[in-house]
């Protein structure tokens, strides 16, 4: 992908992925799902999970899976509210970019010569 993914956006994506599984999900699966959306090196994910865990956005627990204990991650209440915050911010940001990219106001200007109406930033 041509665009960089900053730490906040990465946190948001990881939280969203973990949030999809109310029963909890595990590192490899999270990595694969995140990698379907953004291009990131597999080693990047552990530090993110660890940080989110320290920030109490995620909790870990162990559950048996085919004869071994697998570590699972589950989103916390705090993590969910953090995710909501990120999602809200994202839509606000994406909306602004849409307006810039579609250039509605500019087209109206050049074609009709009218003053462009609202171009809220």
């Amino acid at each position: 992908m041509v665009f960089n993914t900053g730490a906040a956006l990465l946190d948001a994506i990881v939280l969203a992925v973990v949030n999809k599984d109310p029963e909890g999900t595990y590192g490899y699966k999270i990595t694969q799902e995140v990698r379907q959306v953004i291009d990131l090196s597999e080693s990047t994910l552990y530090p993110v999970l660890r940080r989110l865990q320290k920030d109490e956005c995620l909790i870990t627990f162990d559950r048996e899976f085919s004869g071994r204990n697998r570590r699972y991650y589950r989103i916390t209440e705090k993590g969910r509210s953090q995710l909501n915050l990120y999602v809200g911010e994202w839509y606000a940001y994406a909306g602004k970019l849409d307006r810039i990219f579609t250039g509605e106001a500019f087209i109206a200007d050049s074609q009709t010569g009218k003053e462009h109406k609202e171009y809220a930033v």
Partner: peptide, 22 residues
């Protein structure tokens, strides 16, 4: 975490995972 990771990658994907981790 990385032990789990390789276990979950399974024999089919473990080579790929190690390579991708670098």
């Amino acid at each position: 975490y990385y032990n789990d990771y390789f276990d979950d990658a399974g024999p089919n994907h473990i080579e790929e995972a190690i390579e991708s981790l670098g």
